[in-house]
Nucleic acid binder design. Sequence first.
DNA 1: TTAAAATATACCGATTTGGGATATTTTTTA
DNA 2: TAAAAAATATCCCAAATCGGTATATTTTAA
Lengths: 68, 68
Amino acid sequence: MRLRNLRKEKGISQLKLAIDLNMNQNSISRYETGERQADYTTLIKFADYFDVSIDYLLERTDNPKINR
Amino acid sequence: MRLRNLRKEKGISQLKLAIDLNMNQNSISRYETGERQADYTTLIKFADYFDVSIDYLLERTDNPKINR
DNA sequence: TTAAAATATACCGATTTGGGATATTTTTTA
DNA sequence: TAAAAAATATCCCAAATCGGTATATTTTAA
């Protein structure tokens, strides 16, 4: 997912993101490297934090299906 | 998530959906009742199967953020 | 109102997760 | 450039979650 890019764009560290979202730094690292899979609620946290759609977060904007 | 509605719209049973997606009927039941949380890849399976965006699947179309 | 189909739940071993600690890498600064 | 600090990745392990089988419950249809 686009987590790393979004975070870098915002210019914050994994630690700050982790604190803001009430998570651990190592969890952020694992999501960014793809070592662990974010679940439903974690995806929503990220999308809300960066103000993007979940489809964008998951790099699925190539098949938009905007109406649904 | 909108899983149950999407499935009913399509007029198929949990069992058929499970078979099509190579999952178990009880897993579908659990996702529909919210007992279990679908991860990243499972969400993508559902979205692709019903041809909807993940944001729609997760009932987040009220804040669309279409460009991102 | 019974039988069949559909859905939900109990149980359990296996997998995955989060968190602390720490190692490694990158950046800063003296 | 070298040392210090910051940022990121990895190890370990207990706890939580998961998938699968079996079965119970509910809904549908004859």
